[in-house]
């Protein structure tokens, strides 16, 4: 059987469930799905994010994560500890994990126009792959460092509010 069949069927199944509420951090995500999250520790971060991330996997949605390259393996282990089959999800296209350098900091600097285009590309791409939703989770700790282009981050974040209302996908 073509493995793509499973994904498309799964996508169709999930499409019928798209109206199901998305629970996240003790509440339900409403129409506004651009979320800023502050954590005191990585343990607190994962205790909040993992149930939300796992729920997306179980519903057959796409997961697109951007991480500090130094924490890439730890991130994969944290997902696995929640029962997520990381490698299988990567192989099927359900899960994509990128380092900062392959997203926010391509060519070593932050370019807000390029990043806005990437976000749209990812969200559109998820749809085209047959996923009802993409849950995008990005670690932004690079913004605390003195990186070229970081001064444009605030403008980028506000401009993202023009883009995201066109999608149902949560962006954390």
């Amino acid at each position: 059987m073509d493995p793509d069949d499973d994904r498309v069927k799964s996508g169709r199944r999930v499409s019928s469930e798209i109206s199901r509420p998305i629970r996240f951090a003790g509440s339900v995500l409403d129409a506004q799905r651009h979320v800023c999250a502050f954590f005191h520790s990585h343990d607190e971060e994962y205790s909040t994010l993992l149930p939300f991330i796992k729920d997306g996997f179980e519903r057959g949605e796409k997961a697109f994560h951007i991480v500090d390259p130094k924490r890439r393996e730890e991130h994969r282990l944290r997902l696995a500890s929640a029962g997520i089959e990381v490698e299988a999800a990567e192989k099927s296209g359900q899960f994509e994990l990128r380092n900062w350098a392959d997203a926010y900091l391509r060519d070593g600097h932050f370019d807000q126009d390029r990043m806005l285009a990437l976000i749209e590309e990812v969200l559109e791409g998820g749809r085209q792959q047959g996923f009802a939703l993409t849950r995008l989770v990005a670690d932004m700790e690079w913004a605390l460092e003195d990186r070229p282009g970081v001064d444009d981050l605030v403008e980028y974040e506000t401009r993202l509010n023009y883009v995201l209302p066109r999608y149902n996908d949560p962006v954390i």
Partner: peptide, 11 residues
Amino acid sequence: THPMIIIGGIL
């Protein structure tokens, strides 16, 4: 710049 926020683990 974010319409929603998580602080103290609460959205």
